[in-house]
């Protein structure tokens, strides 16, 4: 006899896993379409970033010239002293903080606190924009010092190439995130999420899940930065 699938409890662990995968309709029982789509996209994007990093690492290993000393190249001259990686530390701090504000926004979203959610999302966007701004500053500084994709005064030419490619690709992700944060926050602020009806961001009145999905993306972009930080700046 096939076991009745009408049961409504949610068995945990392996039993629950097996039950969900052998059930009808939905494999991930409490996951909406949008969230599932974001997770799978992030999986694919993880591959993109991993391969970028692997490509960079293999270039770093195969090049014959010496790799520049990153703590010197990325140092800031403040008050008569060279502080290694100062800017990057600040950037990392800003981005991680933005993950915090994003998490708070998600929480407020579930409480349907309209203004708090929108406000925290704007704050997240601001921190994200600050990050991109500092990245622009860093790029400008390096370009002024003569770093180019095809060569630089410090050592192996793959250094500049990888730097611009990887931080550029990550920065693009952050910028797109900022854009969507602002769009969603503005819609929330205007109360569009509290009106009935289905739009591309919500299924009905009070459906704030888009905030959480946005949050998934944002935390992912942060996480990627941690890896870039470790493999590019610290190595």
């Amino acid at each position: 006899m096939a076991e009745s699938t009408l049961q409504t409890d949610h068995p945990e662990g392996l039993d629950g896993f097996v039950r969900d995968w052998s059930s009808d309709q939905r494999t991930f029982k409490r996951v909406s379409w949008g969230k599932a789509m974001m997770w799978i996209f992030l999986l694919s994007d993880t591959f993109v970033f991993s391969i970028f990093l692997i490509g960079y690492m293999s270039a770093r290993m195969s090049t014959k010239s010496d790799w520049p000393n990153t703590s010197e190249v990325f140092s800031l001259h403040v008050g008569g002293a060279d502080l290694p990686l100062l800017l990057i530390a600040i950037m990392t701090f800003v981005l991680i903080s933005s993950s915090g504000t994003m998490a708070m926004a998600v929480r407020c979203g579930y409480a349907r606190a309209r203004k708090a959610t929108a406000g925290l999302m704007y704050l997240t966007a601001l921190l994200g924009a600050t990050f991109v701004g500092m990245q622009v500053f860093e790029w400008t500084k390096l370009i002024q010092e003569g770093v180019r994709p095809w060569g630089n005064p410090f050592g192996a030419e793959q250094f500049g190439a990888s730097f611009f490619m990887i931080t550029g690709f990550h920065g693009t992700h952050v910028s797109i995130g900022v854009l969507f944060l602002i769009i969603i926050a503005t819609k929330i602020w205007r109360g569009e999420f509290d009106r009935p009806g289905r739009t591309w961001l919500k299924s009905d009145a009070g459906d704030y899940e888009a905030v959480e999905i946005m949050g998934l993306y944002w935390h992912f972009v942060d996480l990627v930065w941690v890896f870039i930080f470790a493999f590019f700046y610290l190595w």
């Binding site: 799978i40 999986l43 591959f47 993109v48 391969i51 970028f52 490509g55 994709p149 095809w150 190439a161």
Partner: peptide
């Protein structure tokens, strides 16, 4: 979804090599 990223990255890098003279 998991294999195209490799081609994507390879294309970007080669485009850099061609357009920006990276190596």
């Amino acid at each position: 979804l998991l294999a195209f990223p490799a081609l994507f990255v390879a294309c970007v890098m080669m485009l850099f090599d061609r357009l920006l003279s990276t190596s």
